[in-house]
Simulated scan of single mutants.
Amino acid sequence: MKKPLAEFIGTFTLVLLGCGSAVIAGGDIGLTGISFAFGLALIGMAYGIGSVSGCHINPAVSLGAVAAGRMTIAEAIPYMIAQIAGAIAAALVLMMIATGKADYSVAENGLGQNGWGAGYLGEYNVAGAFIFEVVATFLFMVVILGATGAGAPSAMAGLAIGLTLVVIHLVGINVTGVSVNPARSIGPALFAGGTAIAQLWLFIVAPIIGAVAAGILFRTGLLDAE
C-alpha cells in the first residue's frame, strides 16, 4: 500500500495547491503565479514521495511508463486508482475551503476545472485544445522519462520535471487551463459539473495519447540512453 498511498497524497497535493492557487489566489497571483504553483507542488512531491512511488501523480504518466517498459499494467492500475481518488479528495477539500467565502459558488467561480470554447479563458476551439494537450503531455513525458532514465542526474529530476510543468502552464493556461493529467481534470470536473463533465473526455484521451507516444519512443530505443 505504500506506493498507492504516496500517489494519493502526491496527487491530492498537486490538485489542492495547483487548482487552489487559481480558485483562491488567482486574482492576486495571476497566470504566472498559478503556473508556478502547479510546478512547485510537483517539485515538492517529487522529493517527498519520489523515492516511494516515483511520483507519477498522473494516470497518463503511469501509462506512459507502461508504454516505455518501465512498469507493468498490473502495477499501473493501483497507481491510477490512487491518483484519481487523490484528485477527487483534493477537489472536495478545495470546494469546502472556497465555500467559506461568502461570495463564492462552484457554478460561478469554478474549481479550476479544464475546458475550452466560448466562455472559457482564451476561448480556443476543440481542435486547438486537443492538439495542445497531446503535444504538451508528449513533451512532459519525454522530460520525465529522460530525467529519470539511466545516466541522468537523479537529484535534478524533480526540478527538471517541475519546471517543465511550469512552462507548459505558462503557455497553455489560456488554451485549456492545462491538464496533461487526467486525474487533475477529473477531480474538479466532478464537482463543477455541466460543461466540465461534458468536456472531460478530451482531458482523459489527449494526455494518454501524448504520454503513451513518448513512452513508445523510449521503448523502441529512439530516445532512451540505455
Rank of each mutant, 00 (worst) to 15 (best):
Ala90Met: 10
Ala82Phe: 09
Cys55Met: 12
Asp28Thr: 15
Pro78Arg: 10
Ile9Lys: 08
Leu17Glu: 09
Phe8Glu: 07
Leu94Arg: 05
Ala91Gly: 13
Arg219Asp: 09
Val52His: 02
Asn125Trp: 05
Tyr47Glu: 10
Thr164Arg: 00
Gly146Leu: 03
Gly54Glu: 00
Gly26Leu: 01
Leu31Ile: 12
Leu145Ile: 04
Leu222Phe: 07
Arg219Gly: 09
Gly146Trp: 00
Phe203Glu: 14
Ile131Ser: 10
Gly149Cys: 08
Met1Ser: 02
Ile84Glu: 01
Leu94Asn: 06
Ala22Asp: 07
Gly69Met: 02
Ile208Asn: 11
Thr11Asp: 13
Arg184Lys: 01
Val61Lys: 02
Ile88Tyr: 11
Ala189Ile: 07
Leu222Gly: 08
Lys101Asn: 15
Ala25Ile: 14
Tyr120Glu: 01
Pro59Thr: 03
Gly33Val: 01
Val175Ala: 14
Gly122Asp: 15
Leu139Ser: 03
Ser21Glu: 09
Ala198Met: 10
Gly117Arg: 02
Ala85Arg: 03
Gly64Phe: 04
Leu222Tyr: 12
Leu202Ser: 13
His56Ser: 11
Val15Ile: 11
Leu159Trp: 05
His56Glu: 14
Thr220Ser: 11
Gly54Cys: 02
Val61Phe: 04
Trp116His: 06
Asn114Val: 09
Phe191Val: 13
Ala37Leu: 00
Val175Gly: 14
Cys55Thr: 14
Leu42Pro: 08
Leu92Thr: 14
Arg70Asp: 09
Val126Ser: 04
Met80Arg: 14
Ala37Thr: 10
Thr137Gln: 02
Gly122Trp: 15
Thr220Gln: 12
Arg219Ala: 09
Phe38Val: 00
Pro153Val: 04
Gly162Ile: 07
Gly221Asp: 08
Ile204Thr: 14
Glu226Asp: 11
Ile168Thr: 02
Val134Tyr: 05
Leu42Ala: 13
Gly215Leu: 03
Gln83Gly: 15
Leu200Trp: 15
Gly33Arg: 00
Arg70Met: 08
Gly26Gln: 08
Gly44Asp: 00
Thr176Tyr: 09
Ile209Asn: 00
Gly117Asp: 04
Ile84Tyr: 01
Ser154Gly: 14
Val178Glu: 06
Asn174Glu: 12
Gly117Ile: 08
Trp116Gly: 10
Glu108Ile: 10
Ala214Tyr: 07
Leu31Pro: 07
Thr72Gln: 03
Ala60Leu: 01
Ile208Trp: 08
Ala87Glu: 00
Ile29Tyr: 12
His56Phe: 14
Ile34Asp: 04
Leu159Gln: 05
Tyr104Lys: 08
Phe140Tyr: 05
Thr72Tyr: 05
Ile204Phe: 08
Asn109Glu: 12
Trp116Gln: 12
Phe218Asp: 01
Asn109Met: 14
Thr99Asn: 07
Ala152Gln: 07
Val171Met: 13
Ala118Thr: 06
Glu133Tyr: 10
Ile173Gln: 12
Met80His: 15
Val143Phe: 01
Gly20Met: 08
Val23Ser: 05
Ser185Asn: 03
Ala74Val: 13
Tyr124Glu: 11
